[in-house]
Amino acid sequence: MSNSVILKVEHLKKYFPIKAGVFRKIVGWVKAVDDVSFEVLEGETLGIVGESGCGKSTLGMTILRLYEPTAGRVVFAGKEISRLSSSALRPIRKDMQMIFQDPFGSLNPRMRIGSIIEEGMSVHGLYSSTERKEKVRELLEKVGLSADYVNRYPHEFSGGQRQRIGIARAMALSPRLIIADEAVSSLDVSIRSQILNLMKELKREYSFTYLFISHDLAVVRQICDRVLVMYLGRIVEIADKKVIFSRPLHPYTVALISAVPVPDPDYVVDRVILHGDVPSPIHPPSGCYFAPRCPVAERCRKDEPPLVEVENGHWVACHLPGSLSLKRENGDKKC
């Protein structure tokens, strides 16, 4: 794995206006992504986890400039893309692609599979028309579908097959960075592992860099190199996967990991049950956003904890890192 930074996100913010009344006046802001900074190395897979509504998708979309950032910078392959005009951005789009969550909604129901996969290549003027057709067939086989499907429509496929088509579409442009937003969440377990294996294989073959957005920690554990945990629009912890799953330091990460039910009756974990609901990003609490639900919070309600590097590559935003730890009785025995 080379060590060059392919993506650098600096103080990125995305606020959505809330409008109300007859004149649609702006009455507040949803701080979906609130001052987020991190780097992604070429060839690595960075997992982004967090609960529903914490801003994972918004982060992905804002990085790709599918949403306009409210503030902050996104540097991709050494070029700042957060302020490029949309026409200057278009050629760069070739190098960053997205795989979407919804296998049903992300394919245009009125287009044939062939044209769906080919569209990106023709937009960027890659290859001749016959080469493109050939390439589409190749890609279909690559993702485990028959090349003869080119003339079918999306509704003739199952969820897992559609997700493969979405992957083929993203790969068609040979991108360097692929953002996969909940790419396997809507699939059944038996299909999910097929798709995960496919993504892993393709990565090995083409050394893509993945930003893997998911709320499923078990999936993240199987596919990522590093993990970034978000809560209410902010990063609470970043670390290597091994570190996150063995020594999480932020109480939220601990609660999150301990809450996942494990399909093994012998796996007994001291479950941290959080109380209360995820607060809304419209009126985030003062101080540490997690304080109202945090079992160990003290002064945290007043001061906002900065994201600091507590050990090499392990960043935590908490006043009391490590005061809540993951207690398992025999969970790690097989590691």
Binding site: R90, P91, Q101, S106, N108, G120, V123, G166
Partner: peptide, 22 residues
């Protein structure tokens, strides 16, 4: 707001084509 329109934008398809085709 549909994802396939987002997907087309992410591919770099221009606005007019997005409207006409998608």
């Amino acid at each position: 707001e549909e994802q396939f329109v987002m997907a087309a934008k992410a591919l770099g398809v221009s606005d007019l084509v997005v409207i006409l085709r998608h």
